[in-house]
Amino acid sequence: MKRNHLQAAFEKQKRFKTKVEGYRKKPLDLSKAKEVPEGLYEKCDQCGKALISKDMVKNHYVCPACDHHFRLRAIERISITVDPHSFIEKGLGFITLNPLFVDHYENKIAEYKKATSLDDAYIYGYAQINNNPLVLGVLDSHFMMGSMGSVVGEKVAKSIEYAMVKRLPLIMFIASGGARMQEGIFSLMQMAKTAGAIKKLHNQGLLFISVLTHPTTGGVTASFASLGDIILAEPKALIGFAGPRVIKQTIKQSLPEGFQRAEFLLEKGMIDKVVHRKDMRETLHKLLVMHQRG
């Protein structure tokens, strides 16, 4: 019998697995987010000011000089958004495969796993904001630009289904370059999968708040990220379908100032509100309270 391509990909992964040090078996340790050694400095990408890392945490990872919002790791995002110790991670044990046999894809995934201690770019779980329960999903742009492959798509759908089972509101923080090229057509299909799952959520009358952070582009913007009942965005976040470089190449013109930034989308009526990071938790809290019934 002719060996199926996908069977072969799966077997290859099995062989590969022996080479990589285990898969994450425990939920993410959030206390790590706050552990910043003394005397460490960081430089703001925007204004170049040197900032003490410890102060950064206190300042919600926003530059005090120029208000630049730093890109957050998933654990940092969770720790500044929800009540301490309230987050319980769900959906462990997903393993990313290499269906198209793209060279070095397994190695890349293994490197990102090590660097971020995530399984893939998306994590979700139960959480509380000021004691209001919710399902929180976070895309981490430090893991392969937060791109959506089969595992991310599946986990996004699972988090939506988890919200439906528990009948809880769903909040997602998006940061993604779009679909994951290495997984080809499977990544594309995740758009239909996740958008369909959101439709089910809406049919059940549950709240979905989508928070777009820098950057939100491509297949993720064109599926679940744009389907929130309420869409918030962080200041100056890049949000769009095609990337600015692609648009520039296609139309052979320079792009207007501030194009595809959160403020631009607000002006064009595509999002509800631009919310500064220091106000995000409070805004989400208010929205959650306003959607409580009976």
């Binding site: 758009m191 769009g240 595509m270």
Partner: peptide, 25 residues
């Protein structure tokens, strides 16, 4: 889908997302 200033300004991503959303049901 066309990548251009007009398309982005009028919500290319939102239009596609909305189609996927409605088509599923």
């Amino acid at each position: 889908a066309f990548p251009g200033i007009g398309a982005e300004s009028r919500g290319q991503a939102m239009a596609i997302a909305n189609n996927l959303y409605e088509m599923s049901d």
